[in-house]
Amino acid sequence: MKIVLNREKLNSFYVQTIKDISLQKIMSCYQCGKCTAGCPVADFMDVVPNEMMRLVMLGEIEKLLSSKAIWLCTSCFQCGTRCPKGIEVHRVFEALRSIALREGKNYTDIEKLSEDVLDEIPQQGIIAGFRKFESLE
């Protein structure tokens, strides 16, 4: 993947927003990969957690906002628990999801959910799942 670095991208509104709402020191990540090693859904992600950290550092936020990975994160907090640099990687994931949702991008299609699932799955699952469906407009 070819990445062009420039000052504007590194200090973009997106990068600043991620720092503001995750409160994490993105630049202290040294790419050890422990977050990815512990992630239960890394096998299914198009961008794995340590790659996500790297792309945030490089200001490549659009790539992340259109990734499937940010929505596959289960918020199990394993990545943040095991990070040797104390970065709460899960908060960076949440910041990316928040940006996407605040821009009106949805992920969960409520109409496609089966009645059976809604009848059986506990409320905590439905609410957590629907947080990927914040804005209708």
Binding site: P40, V41, D43, F44, W71, L72, T74, S75, C76, Q78, Y107, T108, L113, V117, I121, Q124, G125, I126, I127, A128, G129, F130, K132
Partner: peptide
């Protein structure tokens, strides 16, 4: 202490089934 897939059963049930 691995995650069961949690709420992604709503959006990606095949992934949480695997977990």
């Amino acid at each position: 202490s691995e995650c069961c897939g949690a709420h992604i059963s709503v959006s990606n049930p095949e992934v949480s089934l695997e977990c």
